[in-house]
Design a protein around this nucleic acid. Structure first.
Lengths: 181, 181
DNA sequence: ACCTGAACACCGTTCAAGT
DNA sequence: ACCTGAACACCGTTCAAGT
């Protein structure tokens, strides 16, 4: 939905969507029962953009590749992370979760450890996409220097200091490091 | 804001908020320039509920305590996780981020590793709160059994099988485990 | 300094009616 | 089966005006 990418979730209007489809706004309600339905469909749809590559010999590489594309897809559609939660149950999402979980299984993870790692990875990716999608127009973060010594020394809020991509990849590696072979 | 807790972010209306304050809706615009301002204020405000306990001898315990309360606060106000991203820069949030980062410093983390771990932890907490806040009314997840073998075998979508709290704590421990003393 | 009232340009959604 | 038109009950926000 290019409408969402341009105007954000606040700018998506049933009337606007209808117009882009050359229909009346009320016509949409034959196909869909509520505006939330539209958002649910759009959300699940973008996960179709996340490729699930043929599983290779190194399961860690499969996991990394999947989760990088997962984050990329959300960053390409910055409205998406905030919508997550409701229908993390669309078919596209489920297929990718299955892929992730089976890769972890190949790594030897089972039971509690499998569940913990799946959640940890998924929630990390979602959290990362959510925070990164909205930062960017950051013009705040000034004179923080005085009040928060450790924070400003670490450059946590300085986008020039650390790159989002390397922090994400390193986080992924940290999670994957302590795991079974 | 009990209004938000009861009606969610969609149910918070300038008119409704005004009424609860015994004022006209238009009066609000003298104190605030836009509705988004109200949400930003409300969001930062709930992080004031997250206690920063006196740092103890075990830095890991400080981190765990902070992040558990952090997640708890967001789950008490389920509308909050989806709003994160814009002003993760309010004073309450900044104070907690500073606390977290200084605890990690006491643990011996510096530079890249400090930045990576801070992000990893923060994004995990946010992602967890976001996904957990909206699930709960899950009445989907049926006949998934057939199509996604690993997924359904793991009980990933079965709330009776794994408890959110233990998965969260275990995730936290997994992140903290591989780190400096 | 702080609030009201009227008004504007929108919303999502329902429903009878058309083809 | 699919769409239109009119209508309802709301929205956020602006602005002149009051105290």
């Amino acid at each position: 939905m290019p409408l969402l990418d341009r105007h954000g979730v606040a700018g998506l209007t049933m009337r606007r969507l209808a117009e882009s489809l050359d229909v009346t706004a009320t016509a949409l309600y034959w196909h869909v029962t509520t505006k939330e339905d539209v958002l649910d469909l759009a959300l699940d749809h973008i996960f179709g953009e996340v490729p699930m590559r043929e599983p290779g010999p190194e399961w860690r590489d499969d996991v990394r590749a999947l989760l990088r594309s997962w984050r990329d897809a959300m960053l390409r559609h910055p409205w998406s992370p905030a919508l997550i939660g409701r229908p993390v149950l669309g078919p596209e999402v489920l297929a990718r979760t299955e892929y992730l979980q089976s890769a972890l299984s190949r790594g030897g993870l089972t039971d509690l450890e499998l569940a913990v790692t799946t959640r940890l990875l998924a929630n990390f990716v979602i959290g990362a996409a959510l925070t990164e999608a909205s930062r960017g127009d950051g013009d705040a973060r000034r004179h923080i220097t005085a009040d928060y010594p450790t924070l400003s020394a670490s450059g946590h809020l300085d986008p020039a200091r650390w790159n989002d991509d390397v922090l994400f990849d390193a986080g992924l590696d940290a999670i994957l490091a302590g795991r079974q072979r």
